[in-house]
Amino acid sequence: MAGKKPQKAGWTRRDFFNWMLNVVMGVIAILVAIPSVGAAITPAFHNAAPVWVNLGAQTGLQQSSVQAGTGGVGTVVKAPYSYVEVDHWAKLPAADYAYLRYIGGSCAFYILSPICTHLGCHVNWIQADNQFHCPCHGSVYTVDGLNVSGPAPLPLGVFRWKMVGNDVWVARESTFTHAHQRTTESPTEPCLKEA
């Protein structure tokens, strides 16, 4: 500032340049922050669509459920399925299972998620007790998937399902519950068959 007049008090040249510098740096910081923060919070805006998976032919599923039961009444059987899991950029072959029971009538199948509503373990079907037992913390569910004992806060999820030709397809939803999550214990045998 050599050779310049002394600055007046108040809004000085120096203040102005300081202010300009702060504004420019602020704008740069915002420009960098927008896409960075956007990328970081992207998962909050992604809602996974259900993946329809094939459990197999209806007649075979019905037979296995009836054969496992007694007196012509179907009971719970494991219905394994395999599918291609699209995990963000990765596509991986994956396999899991549902618990399927033939209940007759117009609804035909009652298909439960094997995922415990407590902390997400796969529950075991115990034919002798007519119950599902969770191996992790001892939650117990009835044949309809209602939570009757242990820490489980909710009934087992129920799969939405539909017929495609002669095959039964179920809607695999979030990794955490697999199926439609019941929030109350009201309908014991909801029919989630879709056209």
């Binding site: 927008i34 896409p35 960075s36 956007g38 990328a39 970081a40 919070i41 992207t42 805006f45 992604h46 963000h88 950029w89 990765a90």
Partner: peptide, 27 residues
């Protein structure tokens, strides 16, 4: 956060950043 240094996934994860991440292409 999204990129994977792996011959199978690096191209796909880069494509994922470009097409599916919010402002990913800008980033």
């Amino acid at each position: 956060m999204y990129y994977v240094p792996d011959i199978i996934n690096s191209y796909n994860s880069t494509k994922y950043i470009m097409h599916h991440v919010l402002f990913g292409l800008q980033l």
